[in-house]
Design a protein around this nucleic acid. Structure first.
Lengths: 263, 263
DNA sequence: TGGTTATTCCCACATTATGGGAGAATGCTA
DNA sequence: TAGCATTCTCCCATAATGTGGGAATAACCA
């Protein structure tokens, strides 16, 4: 029965079980069992068995009849992560003042997991006023950011240990080139070294034409390893009008204060 | 090789895989592979295989060498749940005004998943001033609440369809008795009917001696099924001094407004 | 109360996880 | 840079465990 298996990350029940989580998206936050069968090519028995296992773990929960949504365990585990994340705790203490210092701006803390940059905290308004309208920004906790694009990611990337960057380069050369970070290893190295020298990354109009972002790394005091990045997002016109030195100094001070509170 | 299997929810690789998530707690937010071996009785190969599968799914991420923490997927999935949860979206719109109406109070939205009540949103200060000191309340998103205790849970429980309550009674008679909800089925039914008649639940000094909680159900407009509960937490002395009718009316209006925004 | 759909149960089969150790890769220290 | 100590992956014969098809329940709706 290996006629077709449309989208599977691997073989074996262990990996197939977790493939079910991929089916949950913003467009389809509740999933039917027969959708699991159809999309992943499982039989009815297997689909139910897997769904039951995930339900028992609390990762899924029955919604309407025949439908399942993500479960309470997700929310609990996220709470656990929030409570246990030193970076987040430190940021929560430091960010309010930082955010308030510049009106019409929001501040993000981002963090690297394996090879994924994620926004772990956002402070400030949910929208930025620019060009006469409010630009809603969904860049809240949990938003995955492209690893090789955007100020927040680059600030982290530039401060990663060489061997980590080397590994990423070998594995994802295409993406790195496409993102304009350099076509070969020396070019990438130089680009990241330049960012390190500057101590910050600025992008204007990258994600949204009307927005600007300024990002600095958060470096652990003792060993200088990067633990995340601190990013301020503003309306692009306002950013052009502001004193960049002062903005940068503020942000750096925020990053230092955050780092100082880490264990 | 079935000498001992200290703490396992079931047999079979499918369930054992997810048992690893149980090891992550506030006390031990990062877990070593040899801890997995020791606590769950897996061999080195199996422990690594499982951990790898969870890492590939993003539910775990390598932390320090040999250690793993919960992974970015958790945060992403929680974001997905937040974006997709109509109750939460409605609550976010309604709660700010409600919270501001009574100083030194916080408002919670709780929801039922299968047989678990969870706080899905909190609005208001992180601490309540009572008896001259600030009582920090960790009752934020993700906190699991006991199903048969507390205003927030009871408000939901009382409005559950009979067959659901019946099932819970049969499965968890002990807990229900211990919580003082009644020793037999008629007693429980009457107790819940009384709550339904009142339309609200009040508890004073249940979780914390100095706090009071007032909770009302959030009922879907069309079919009156309960989708969650809205709870205000205050300092107990202040609660005694306030006009309960007005408090209750406010909260009911909030619940109605929330329900009105549901799809 | 019936009719419909969702879910669990069952069991022979063979696919798939298992575990022990060897070996590679990684990270740390001198 | 070399050397050491861990962490981690790979390999493969074995049998344990998941698999699937359908039948039997259970849950739900009118």
């Amino acid at each position: 029965m290996e006629e077709e298996r449309p989208a599977a990350s691997g073989t074996g029940s262990i990996t197939r079980l977790l493939d079910i989580l991929d089916l949950f998206t913003i467009e389809a936050p509740v999933v039917r069992v027969d959708t699991v069968q159809a999309r992943l090519g499982y039989t009815k028995s297997t689909a139910y068995r897997y769904v039951k296992a995930l339900c028992d773990a609390g990762l899924l929960a029955p919604a309407a009849a025949g439908s399942y949504s993500l479960g309470p365990r997700i929310v609990e585990l996220d709470r656990l992560m929030r409570l246990a994340d030193p970076l987040l705790r430190a940021g929560e203490a430091v960010l309010p003042a930082l955010t308030a210092a510049v009106p019409n701006s929001m501040v993000l803390i981002c963090s690297l997991y394996r090879d994924k940059v994620l926004c772990v905290h956002r402070e400030g308004p949910e929208a930025i006023a620019a060009e006469g309208r409010a630009i809603r920004i969904l860049r809240a906790r949990g938003l995955p950011l492209p690893l090789f694009q955007g100020a927040a990611s680059l600030a982290i990337l530039a401060h990663l240990p060489q061997h980590r960057v080397r590994g990423l380069f070998l594995a994802r050369r295409q993406e790195i080139g496409a993102a304009g970070l350099g076509e070969d290893w020396p070019a990438l190295r130089m680009r990241l070294a330049a960012i390190r020298r500057d101590g910050h990354v600025t992008t204007i109009g990258r994600f949204n034409r009307h927005l600007a972002a300024l990002s600095v790394p958060i470096l652990a005091r003792e060993d200088d390893r990067v633990v995340g990045s601190l990013t301020r997002i503003m309306a692009a016109p306002e950013f052009r009008g502001l004193a960049h030195d002062a903005l940068l100094a503020e942000l750096r001070a925020g990053a230092a204060a955050t780092a100082a509170m880490l264990p």
